[in-house]
Every structure is written in C-alpha cells, then in structure tokens.
Simulated scan of single mutants.
Amino acid sequence: MAQHPPTSPRICPACDGFASVAITLGGRDARGHLRTITAHCPACQGTGTARTRRNREGARA
C-alpha cells in the first residue's frame, strides 16, 4: 500500500513565510548592543502559514 506524503503547510501570501522580522532602530545602547524591535505579519500573526477559514466567526454549530 502506497503512503501519501504529508501535506505541506500553506505559506502566507502576505509575508511569503517570513512572518517575523527584526527592525533596527538605529544607533546602539550604552553597552554597545544594537537596538531592535520585532514586527510580526498582521495577516498570519507571526506563524508564516496561511489560515483556512472553515467556520465563520459568530456562526453556531
């Protein structure tokens, strides 16, 4: 019996799978570390995969 390969997760079309990025704020702090902030993709909330909508919000089963 042939085994089917597992399905690969769908990549988010908004960020192409790069869901979190570090953005430099410019300059360094007193200890010499580069100051950065982390930004997440708003479409996938930082997961990198597209979500499928199987049930609507507010819908009852």
Rank of each mutant, 00 (worst) to 15 (best):
G48K: 06
R31G: 10
I37N: 04
V21A: 05
A22S: 05
G32Y: 12
T38M: 00
C41G: 08
H4N: 13
G27P: 02
G26Q: 04
R10N: 11
H40T: 12
R60L: 11
G32D: 12
A61H: 12
T7F: 02
C12T: 02
V21H: 04
D16E: 10
A19C: 08
F18D: 11
S20K: 06
Q45R: 13
H33G: 13
A14Q: 14
A59W: 05
P6M: 05
H33K: 13
D29H: 02
G48Y: 07
R60K: 11
R35M: 08
P42A: 15
R56I: 07
A50N: 01
A39G: 05
G58L: 06
L34H: 11
T7Y: 03
Q3S: 08
R53A: 14
T38A: 00
H40E: 10
G17W: 10
V21T: 09
A22Q: 03
R28T: 14
T7K: 13
A2K: 15
T38L: 00
A30N: 08
P6T: 01
I23W: 01
T7I: 08
A2D: 15
T52F: 12
R53D: 11
R10W: 09
G17T: 09
G32I: 12
Q3T: 13
H33V: 13
R35F: 01
I37F: 02
A2G: 15
R10Q: 15
A39H: 03
C15S: 09
C44G: 04
P9D: 01
A59V: 07
H40Y: 07
I37Q: 08
G58P: 06
R31W: 11
G26N: 04
T52N: 15
P5D: 01
R54E: 11
G17H: 07
R54K: 11
C44A: 08
A2P: 15
T49V: 13
Q45P: 01
P6V: 03
G58W: 10
G58H: 06
S20R: 11
I37W: 00
T7Q: 14
A19P: 03
R56M: 13
V21W: 01
T24S: 14
